[in-house]
Write a protein that binds this DNA or RNA. Structure first.
Lengths: 344, 344
DNA sequence: CTGAAAGCGCTTACAG
DNA sequence: CTGAAAGCGCTTACAG
């Protein structure tokens, strides 16, 4: 069924039907005609054809979601955030009858033209999920997108871009400071993530906290080996740490997966957490309860960031006013479970 | 840039450009002209406008994915499969430049018209993810979709529908039989899922295995209380079971989350798994390694099913031949980790 | 307040 | 082999 047929049934023109169905009829269409159109439309379960609308409105009702393909391909370990975000983004967009295009984005340098052209001709907006800041910035500059975009979960530190982020450095600084206040003097940090840049941000926070409290920074307490498997990283780091003559009394894992690996090794070797060693993770809610004891961790606001991204993107797409660059900060939240206790 | 402009640049007509860019030019367009068009198109990063194509081809380049909204809204516990599948589906579709529409499908009875009309006017095909068989069947009959669809992960037991499934009854039967062969005579089963129908299928397999081996079915070994939280279900079931005077020597958890809950309780109460009690789970790979000991489980081929669904759906959408009803079976696979050991 | 008409960017018969 | 033209289903000036 098309708008033409519906117009015929309602004994009016397609223009009138279009106005009514798009809610733009006030003061333009006689109320009785509007009502009739609405009733007929409901009765026949009529929906405006999206291709027709797209063509004339120069809008595609599609939003692109760009993410590294490792996130898309290997949803098993540590990449849970991406799937949470994808679910939320698609559900939110669906409410406004937008659909999503998943775009794999790995080789930032080589695919600029392809990506730009693909985005430009298919989508109304773009969401970049957790890109590496130092790579997405030149890409955005080169792309010079004419459509709205938002970068989610990367602190681009430049107000001319649109991004939603958390200040991981200060989150980590605060948590390490709390550990110090509790009496810990020997605090370790284990790298869980594969991204060097992200780890550096957290390590900065760690260093700042130590230096503020005049605690000496010990390189052997930083376990930053590169390994694909975050869980295994935690497991092996635990082995290394617990073999030390004077091991740390508290550990910060930069990723929950890694924290769970740590716990698994500790359990096997009868190390008591939090009795012998306190442990704090960082990441999703998702897997944080699957260990014994349950992980105390800084919860990342991944869902909130995704939701916000859709909200502002749609506002920009549907508004006619253009938009100001947007920088929006979310905060990590401390979730106290069983591997460490704090006074808040 | 439009096809018109490109045609002008190439000094030819839009018809010719369209043929070339769609790969239909062989024996219709002079090779030198075709080459010129291809070069110009590449040079200008030209892509055919999808709205224009959609309208004239009567195709939307969109596929709907229907799923219960609890899966979409609460990705934390036990609903991991959905997110794995969503990621795979969207990535696969994206390769063919289709985008996806997420549709929440909860109240099967009341939204038939809305759903049907929405699907019909926006999408070229539909994927139903893990619907309840007894509800999706009447819905499909009433909808009488004119477009291709596939039901993923529900055994509809009716060859007139299109569905991809696993035979959970026989998977469970086999695993229980293996436990019996290993010497277990007291085997418990714990319900992890919220869907009654799915649990019944597994329970059937459990009963069949017992009956084949002439082992008496004991209702107290079936822990099928309803609880939202699968993890907690496992935890509480463990408490109940381990308080029995003669508890089972092996447990089958119908969901991995539930298995991990069981392990957590056992660990806290110094019950040795697999020494005191062997444990087998059922579900995703995703969370199966986050426990100590790691869960032995039947792995569901969720990703494989999703990939297959997209493959056949696109074949149907892009083919012009209509299609035969399709029924495609996948098998669960036993993954032996640390909570139970089998000879295979 | 209403309707006829132009036009969005394509593809596909159809005439040459 | 090539190009002019119709038409997909809408929205939005524009004329009445």
């Amino acid at each position: 069924m098309t708008i033409k047929e519906l117009a015929k049934l309602a004994n009016t023109s397609t223009a009138t039907v279009s106005l009514v169905l798009n809610g733009k009829w006030q003061k333009m269409v006689r109320p009785d005609i509007a009502k009739k159109v609405q009733e007929l439309s409901k009765q026949h379960n009529f929906t405006l054809n999206i291709a027709g609308r797209s063509l004339v409105m120069q809008r595609n009702f599609r939003v692109a979601v760009c993410a590294g393909s490792s996130l898309i391909d290997h949803p098993v370990m540590g990449a849970y955030s991406f799937h949470e975000q994808l679910g939320i983004i698609s559900a939110e967009l669906s409410k406004s009858s937008y659909s999503i295009d998943i775009i794999r984005q790995d080789n930032y340098e080589n695919e600029i033209e392809g990506l730009g052209c693909r985005l430009q001709s298919n989508c109304d907006g773009v969401i970049f999920l957790s890109p590496v800041a130092s790579k997405i910035k030149p890409l955005l500059e080169k792309l010079a997108l004419k459509m709205p975009y938002v970068v989610v979960d990367s602190d681009l530190k430049n107000r001319s871009f649109n991004y939603i982020y958390t200040d991981m450095t200060s989150s980590v600084k605060n948590i390490i400071t709390s550990l110090i206040k509790k009496g810990h003097k020997r605090i370790g940090i284990i790298r869980g993530e594969s991204s060097n840049e992200r780890f550096e941000q957290k390590l900065d926070g760690y260093k700042k906290a130590l230096s503020l409290s005049k605690i000496k920074y010990l390189p052997e307490f930083v376990l930053a080996d590169y390994l694909e498997d975050s869980f295994l990283k935690g497991y092996l780091a635990a082995k290394k740490i617990l073999a030390m003559q004077k091991p740390p009394t508290a550990i910060f894992c930069t990723d929950n997966c890694c924290g769970i690996g740590f716990i698994q090794y500790a359990n096997k070797n009868k190390i008591n957490i939090p009795g012998d060693i306190e442990l704090v993770g960082f990441g999703d809610e998702a897997i944080s309860m699957f260990s014994t004891p349950r992980l105390t961790y800084l919860k990342r606001p991944v869902r909130e960031m995704a939701k916000k991204a859709v909200e502002i993107l749609l506002e920009w797409i549907e508004g006619k006013n253009g938009y100001e660059p947007l920088r929006y900060e979310f905060k990590e939240e401390l979730i106290i479970q069983e591997t460490a206790f704090f006074k808040v």
